[in-house]
Write a protein that binds this DNA or RNA. Structure first.
Length: 274
DNA sequence: CGTAGACCCTGCGCGC
DNA sequence: TGCGCGCAGGGTCTAC
């Protein structure tokens, strides 16, 4: 479900609605997520502590709490993190919840269980194995065409595969990779060794623009994405190619095509992407 | 080393 | 209507 924009939208609603509240208790009903949930560590690091800030790294949501601990949430493909009254009945696939002093709970639901939920010392975030090898934040100050060009020198893959490689640039998933390449007019199968520095510059600018617009529009809700208050996003109506196989390209009218890369669908316009 | 593919899991929409 | 198939926003591990 979530790529960078969706996690960022979630982060903002968590920041506005949860920061300042205190975690009273942690409930865990299903430990079998992408990694086994360690309920004892979650309780030890979170219970009784106030939430200080909500941050994001790549597609991970980070809730810093008092006394130097951080809750890490990853939504995988189908995860949701939403607020509800503390006494609300457990929903299907609600695997865990944080009980808050305000009388609400922050519930974690994830039907496919590709998500992750763990807590660790805030000071060890940078060296933790989940984060140590992550690449550049595309909406941060260090991202540019040079980032992509430098990575391209070390590899011989297609440009779409490189955009989705989190050791190069984080947060760009299957939807936004297709969208950015379409807007930049670059064919998804093009080898990164045959893209000029100028073209990488335009591609980087396009990635920043697409992700930024998606954040502004509340993210993309294809099926089930929602922010912490349950609000759906609006960017799906702005998608130019994703999930539009056979429909006309909004720029040139040619039929949008789909192909398979790395086991994922890629959507592109065969006429205006070269 | 870099890369492509398999795999984890549940639910949904489609064609028959 | 019911059933089987393919597909789904991610990340990690393995075999080359």
């Amino acid at each position: 479900m979530p790529e960078l924009p969706e996690v960022e939208v979630l982060r903002r609603t968590i920041e506005a609605n949860v920061v300042g509240d205190t975690v009273e208790a942690v409930s865990v009903w299903e430990r079998r997520l992408r990694e086994r949930v360690d309920a004892a560590t979650l309780r030890r690091r979170l219970a009784g502590r106030r939430v200080l800030e909500a941050r994001r790294r790549a597609k991970y949501l980070l809730l810093h709490v008092e006394a130097g601990s951080t809750l890490v949430v990853h939504l995988g493909m189908s995860g949701r993190l939403t607020l509800a009254p503390a006494d609300a009945a457990r929903e299907p696939h609600e695997h865990a919840a944080l009980l808050l002093a305000s009388g609400r709970k922050l519930r974690f639901r994830d039907p496919r269980r590709f998500g992750a939920l763990f807590a660790l010392p805030t000071a060890s975030l940078a060296t933790d194995r989940h984060f140590a090898r992550l690449g550049v934040e595309p909406l941060g100050p260090d991202f540019s065409g040079d980032t992509l060009a430098a990575a391209a020198r070390r590899r011989a893959s297609s440009v779409k595969a490189m955009l989705m490689d989190a050791t190069v640039v984080v947060g760009v998933g299957n939807i936004y990779a297709s969208e950015a390449l379409h807007r930049a007019g670059i064919h998804p199968l093009r080898s990164v060794s045959r893209i000029s520095l100028e073209r990488f510059g335009r591609l980087a600018d396009t990635i920043v623009a697409v992700l930024g617009e998606a954040v502004t529009q509340g993210g993309t809700t294809l099926n089930d994405f929602a922010d912490a208050l349950g609000e759906a996003g609006d960017f799906q109506v702005s998608l130019a190619v994703y999930d539009r196989e056979g429909e006309p390209c909004l720029r040139c009218g040619a039929g949008i095509r789909r192909l398979r890369q790395l086991g994922r669908s890629t959507y592109y316009c065969p006429r205006c992407q070269v």
